[in-house]
Design a protein around this nucleic acid. Structure first.
Lengths: 254, 254
DNA sequence: TTGATAATTTGACTTATGTCAAATTATTTC
DNA sequence: GAAATAATTTGACATAAGTCAAATTATCAA
């Protein structure tokens, strides 16, 4: 596993793309670089374990990362799926910063790469804490990040506790479909090209991970895909999902 | 319902007890008071609804408050139970502060009092946002608050998705029992008295609310209490829970 | 290309938890 | 303190979702 993990020289340009750091000066970014490091990970590589000693927070630069918990029986639940330029593992910095300073903090969750060629930035917590004292503007960014995370978690809990798996899956597909349209529009704008319009998108994660994210297991997920297909809301072919009735899908998922 | 809601004159002493404001000066507290108001609520009174226009964040002064979501079928899930001096409904302030400024923000969750004589403080978001710009030290407090909330939510999700109801209830009882011991020790220290030692505590919320908090319904909760009783881990008599085998209860709940 | 491994699907079955209705117990109010 | 209301318990039953095993399909590596 460790053989995939290599070091690379980072630049301040890499940091600038990270929302959290977007307002910082070149000088400040250089400072942050001085106590950050870079890690590459292949699919399935563990970034950190639940209860492992805390080093600092992470940021996805490339690929994607799952944050998950495991039950006593080995069942996995994916709480978050992180995409490039989003940070994770920051909670201990603020939740228990005295523990961080005394090297007593631990990671609150497991993190693993779910794509090959995933790259993450790791920011050492202790120097970052002193950095923050002189750069309070970054606090607002963190407040915004954590608030958004709380909102996502709230929705997640709502889904898991109040909706059955069919509704949860319908909602996931609806949202992922909308996301895929947005991403496409961005590419068209950036590259000034026109992509052919389609009602399909590719699942960005494996069905195993999707099941673990929706709070179920792969067999149930498979059957639920079929139910939505039988009702002519979607068409499933491997990882390719075609939305047949967006209006109905949206209505059902709410 | 509204007839129970009365206004009261607040002082800076009321604010000082709130963790979030504990480091502020008298002058700063007076400022906050100028754009805060006070509300009394009886058991069951709604403080705000999901999707209702956002006014500001709240803080429990007396009693307790549940934060909950409701499913299409009317089932309730309690995400948080807030006790005195903890704040809630702050997420929009940071998550969508532009919406707050433009009066487009909404509350992300429902809030209702679960005790008679509950009192809350309501801090108007817009003036608070400008206050914060000059008092960045309060940002750290908020970061700590939100981080702790994230941790609680993480644990909540873990429980709901990876443990069955018996384990969730065992965990709740174990933690509540430990809390009750702490509270008792605090009273003994404060009042310099010795309370008689006991292995019992009173459920601080109704069984209906407990069921909604554990992600189940009252009938299942009732049966689950019985199971734990049959295994001689606890004894249940109304709201009085006696812990018979703490070690086993702890072991089981992890 | 082919065998090997991993991912997904399908089927038969079990089980935990939810639903509905009725009985019991606790709490409030007059 | 009795009646009324609310909270909780119990029972019979329904069902969504999990378990285990086997089959199928997709993906990867030589």
């Amino acid at each position: 596993m460790e053989k995939n993990i290599l070091q690379k020289k980072l630049t301040t340009d890499d940091l600038r793309k990270i929302h959290l750091f977007s307002d910082l000066t070149e000088e400040e970014l250089t400072k942050i670089l001085s106590f950050s490091r870079h890690k590459k990970a292949g699919k399935g590589d563990i970034l950190f374990f639940d209860t492992e000693p805390y080093f600092g927070f992470h940021c996805v630069l490339e690929g994607s990362v799952k944050l998950y918990k495991i039950s006593g029986e080995g069942r996995e639940h994916i709480v978050h799926i992180m995409c490039p330029y989003s940070t994770f593992g920051e909670v201990p910095v603020f939740e228990s910063f005295e523990d961080v300073i005394n090297d007593k903090a631990v990671y609150p969750i497991n993190a693993a790469s779910i794509e090959d060629d995933t790259e993450v930035l790791i920011v050492s917590a202790k120097p970052f804490l002193s950095f923050m004292k002189e750069n309070t503007s970054i606090c607002f960014k963190f407040l915004s990040t954590l608030s958004k995370r709380l909102k996502v978690l709230n929705n997640h809990i709502e889904g898991i506790t109040l909706h059955d798996i069919k509704r949860r899956l319908a909602k996931y597909i609806f949202e992922e479909f909308e996301n895929s349209k947005k991403r496409k529009a961005e590419i068209e704008r950036a590259k000034k090209i026109k992509l052919k319009s389609t009602d399909s998108f590719e699942l960005p994660i494996s069905k195993y991970d999707l099941a673990a994210h929706l709070g179920t297991i792969i067999e149930t997920l498979s059957r639920t895909f079929k139910k939505l297909q039988d009702e002519n809301l979607i068409d499933v072919s491997g990882k390719k999902i075609t939305v047949l009735d967006l209006k109905e899908l949206k209505k059902y998922s709410q």
